[in-house]
Design a protein around this nucleic acid. Sequence first.
DNA 1: AAATCGTGGTT
DNA 2: TAACCAAGATT
Length: 383
Amino acid sequence: MENFESIEKMRFELLKWYACHGRHSIPWKLKPDGSVPKKSEKLPVYPILVAEVMLQQTQLNVVLPYWENWMKTFPTVFDLASALDHEILLAWQGLGYYSRAHRIHKTSKVLRNVLGDSDHLNPESWPNDKESWIALPGIGRTTAASIISSAFNIPEALLDGNVKRILSRLIGSQESLSKDLKRLWKLSDVLLDPDYPRDFNQALMDLGAKICTSKNPKCFCCPWQKYCFAYHEGNPSDFPIKGSRKVLPYSVIGIGLVFNDLGEVLIDQRTNGQSMAGMWEFPGGKQEEGEAVESTVIRELSEELGIKVKVAKKLVEFDHSYSHQKLHFVVYICQLISGVPQPLASVQTKWVPPSELINYPFPAANQKMISAIKDYLVSNQNP
DNA sequence: AAATCGTGGTT
DNA sequence: TAACCAAGATT
């Protein structure tokens, strides 16, 4: 492969750096008694599974509090398997990429059958081969390798965002990441230390998180500086080669906060076919060409709920960006004129006292609306 | 195989 | 209406 002088030396220098500067207090990488696992020791699998799925496209510091709460709410894989979708989404709320929550839920049910009556606290009861893990919902090549190398200390190469960035700089890849995956996977596999795969993989990710960062990499204290093509070229920040950035489509969304005579607000649950499936939301929809936003709200609530509303007051408006679109939400207080809400474009609808909204999982954009509702109600009480 | 899927932090 | 993007998987 790449003609490095000594791969053994590279491994040693990375592991030496890791011993001094790595992140050694990640809870799911420690034994239940809090000590660092020895080379031959295995770790509980379920906490690692939860962490690795949460870590998909999500940074460690964001994941930590969610992982802590998740482990209290669903302490074992059996607790997770028997949980309700509603409970899963409440625990995942705010973390994003909600399909991950549904997939790990499905995976837990498969694992419940696989484990059967065996001791789920014993790592030996769990599958330890890559193919078995990749077959599970929401587990891909990198997540499977992370689980296997972390839990069992079995050598399995991974290629996450950190490793892609490190390796593309190391070899000065002139291809975009998507066109060079095969080469980078091979390189990750060649470099992986067969004797210390758990530490080596973690060391790579720590190096990417702390030294070989996307912007302003700290090459001056990088253990692989002398091996790095991009460092010698003087332009590590130019790697990996980034493709053309395209402008995100932009839409205006009209939202209707419909209140009934009891002061309850109307919410609906998103369908399985939609993004953020199973999450709740305030009804509304996309503004059409040449349409006033107030009219959007009236039209959408008629189409999706079969009700007629009066748009009373604009409560708040704000921007919210998703991965592949930007939305501008315009949120109105509405009154119900006629009709009974029907779930024509949702799983179900519900009238809820504002104080009870906290019991329903909402996407982040809707959380902004909930805050606005609370401010509005408080200001109405104290004029 | 290119598009899709969230969010919050950083620059 | 800032751009970028991080411990990816799925279709």
